[in-house]
Design a protein around this nucleic acid. Structure first.
Lengths: 242, 242
DNA sequence: CGCGAGCTTGAACATTATCAAGGCAAGTGG
DNA sequence: CCACTTGCCTTGATAATGTTCAAGCTCGCG
């Protein structure tokens, strides 16, 4: 994807800003004011945007691409907390207090970010309560999502977790094809395992079983085709061990 | 605890409001304005404040007591998402969109709440950006807490989860005594199990083992004395199955 | 075509859930 | 004041499930 061609055309980062739901309510003048405070940056796949524990003084908006946010345990395992995509923002915890980043963020592909200093954002909030409200809405959504994940990890059987993950991926990374929904996987098996808190072997085994059962079909190792959405949904709602 | 004696004394719910961090920045006049929009209510242990799926048009502040918030699975298991205490608020997801409650909330003891209609709160946010910023801070904190829990459920061994839970309880429900920290447990074994996504039997067994190891001592069934905080901390940071 | 990373599969092992029985403690009614 | 009852907690035995370790395979790429 081009390096924010639209921004270049419009003589700033207005287009960039427009993409972010939080700023949707602004008029053109305000928008370009906001845009003037933005710094853009590009990362390649595997690049670290920032590390858990680092001080962070900016709000970062994903302009293009996707990233994973994770925490690392003493033994090197990682727990993936989020997959962020175009339009998502991160770093909001660090906007008010001097907290350090609570997770590491890594690019899953080529990523363009728009960063925003803490001071600019705070000033903006005080001037535009509407943005504050939008921000609260976004945070509420994120909380709802976390609560879902939490319930999933806590009470769903492993089969259920995988099914729920596939349903989620289908919505976010899937395209509809004649036979069902084709998912372009954002993560490796190990990544999926790290998201679900299980091992990569278990992911392999469960997916194999699903394929044998005719629920999905793997296409290479980076794509999965959902054939039987109904069964998947049932499995996702399944309780813990029958 | 008395039914908001202070509020009665001050001729309103100003005292009530003062307790909530979000409103801390208001001056007296604003405070009493806010207070005039509040409705108070009392619940007994076991009472349901609201049910998952119900429409909810208010922000609810816990004035006195504690509650648990949980979701139920098709088979009747519950996953406890939060324990809220004095000063915490809930229902923020419902302030902007017409979402229904995403969890059930139940009183763990006698609870007094202060409720706030959605409209009043929205108006307040638009008038007082400071409150909006405070709200964003609170939400950020909650997100940080959820991320912690998530990591805990995802990557920590069961022993680690229990240790982490005890550490958390120690901070929130513990008092320092000569021998260590005495925790007044807010939940039964089953409740703890529902918070950690395991069974009550496993909780019993793990606690017994910890007691045999001299790490804790159970005092009746509703209190636990932490004797060896060091070991507990180590266990909490433990990785998944060594 | 060959190489290597990532994926799959198998077998033994460890852990937790389930099912079942018994114990303890607090509250009740005689 | 004591037996009784009820709810919760503990413990044991067995079965289900996931992890670990190890080996082989596949896909995608140079």
């Amino acid at each position: 994807m081009a390096n924010c061609k639209q921004c270049a055309i419009h003589g700033g980062h207005a287009f960039c800003v427009r993409r972010v739901p939080v700023f949707a309510a602004l008029d053109d003048k305000e928008l370009s004011h906001v845009a003037s405070h933005i710094h853009q940056r590009t990362y390649q796949k595997g690049d670290i945007l920032f590390l858990e524990g680092e001080p962070l003084h900016a709000l970062i908006i994903i302009h293009t691409g996707s990233v994973k946010a994770y925490r690392t345990t003493p033994d090197g395992r990682e727990q993936i907390l989020y997959l962020f995509q175009t339009g998502d923002f991160l770093g909001e915890q660090n906007l008010f207090e001097n907290h350090n980043a609570s997770y590491t963020v890594e690019a899953l592909e080529t990523v363009i970010t728009c960063a925003f200093s803490r001071d600019s954002f705070q000033a903006l909030l005080l001037e535009h309560p509407v943005i504050a409200i939008k921000t609260i809405e976004e945070l509420s959504k994120r909380i709802a999502q976390l609560e879902n994940t939490l319930k999933s990890l806590g009470v769903r059987s492993v089969d259920g977790r995988i099914a729920a993950l596939l349903m989620d991926y289908a919505e976010r990374f899937g395209t509809i094809v004649p036979e069902g929904v084709l998912i372009q996987l954002p993560l490796s098996r190990e990544g999926i395992a790290n998201q679900l808190g299980i091992t990569r072997e278990t992911v392999s085994r469960k997916l194999s079983r699903m394929e044998n059962g005719g629920v999905i079909r793997t296409v290479g190792s980076k794509r999965i085709l959902i054939l039987d959405r109904q069964t998947l949904e049932t499995t996702a709602n399944q309780m813990n061990v029958i």
